[in-house]
């Protein structure tokens, strides 16, 4: 028996899908901001901090990178009340996803910090740049440029990971979809629509990262070796 697709009952629930989409974007946005802040702090501690802080940071990073997000969600949502801390589903979701992203982005930021040689900083200071200018033009922007693809890739995974938060009934798109599915019995259609929405959100976020990247690195030299070659050629000709 051939199955006839019928999207009408799903599209009838468009308002719920829209509010679910907004919830997912808000949840992702909040988690990304908090997670990147955690990641940056942890990476600086791990590279520059005292020994105990570096060890603690490494422990945090390894613990969160080597366990599933779903288990982290369960531990924070079901486990914490057991020791007296009660979080709402939405707060537990933000906390778990932020901590998860924090661990991954800490590793990425660390790679960026280690990618800038000390001599570059000394060279910048020797050219008479202020400490703030060196921080901005010599350390942060070039380091960010090295890690940008890895970082935005991780942010995409974080965005998609928010769907798992439906398991603890945090309000977001997958939960909204699961509700529609259980009331309309149009499973295939519902999840196809959800997939389409997630794909659209992901592509929209990727476009945003691309535009931010263009703006951030507008003054940088091209990444290829050509710029270096043209800069060094005349000097070689002189000698």
């Amino acid at each position: 028996m051939a199955y006839e697709m019928n999207f009408t009952p799903v599209f009838a629930r468009t308002p719920e899908l829209i509010s679910g989409t907004i919830d997912t974007i808000v949840l992702s946005g909040q988690s990304i901001v908090i997670g990147l802040t955690i990641g940056l702090a942890v990476s600086i501690l791990r590279v520059d901090g005292p020994k105990w802080a570096a060890a603690a940071s490494a422990g945090y990073v390894e613990a969160f990178r080597n366990t599933p997000l779903l288990v982290q969600l369960f531990l924070l949502f079901f486990g914490l009340p057991y020791i007296g801390i009660r979080l709402s589903a939405d707060h537990a979701a933000i906390l778990a996803i932020s901590l998860n992203l924090g661990a991954y982005s800490a590793e990425i930021f660390r790679a960026g910090l280690l990618a800038i040689p000390k001599t570059q900083i000394e060279a910048g200071l020797a050219l008479g740049l202020s400490r703030l200018q060196v921080m901005r033009y010599v350390v942060i922007i070039p380091a960010l440029r090295v890690i940008y693809p890895a970082l935005t890739g991780q942010l995409t995974l974080t965005l998609l990971g928010t769907s798992i938060a439906s398991a603890i009934s945090a309000t977001e798109l997958t939960l909204a979809g699961a509700k529609i599915e259980s009331q309309t019995f149009r499973s295939l259609e519902t999840f196809l629509v959800l997939a389409a929405i997630y794909i659209s959100i992901t592509f929209a976020f990727r476009l945003l990262y691309w535009i931010v990247g263009l703006w951030l690195f507008r003054r940088s030299v091209p990444k290829t070796g050509s710029a270096v070659a043209t800069l060094s050629l005349p000097r070689e000709a002189e000698t």
């Binding site: 028996m1 199955y3 995409t156 998609l160 990971g161 928010t162 769907s163 798992i164 439906s166 997958t174 599915e181 019995f185 149009r186 499973s187 295939l188 999840f191 196809l192 959800l194 997939a195 997630y198 794909i199 992901t202 592509f203």
Partner: peptide, 23 residues
Amino acid sequence: QLVQATPLLILIFLAFYGLSFAG
């Protein structure tokens, strides 16, 4: 591109609920 932009959970739901309804 499409699979990498879809949450794994949705892929699993599609395979489990979706296809079972489709026969």
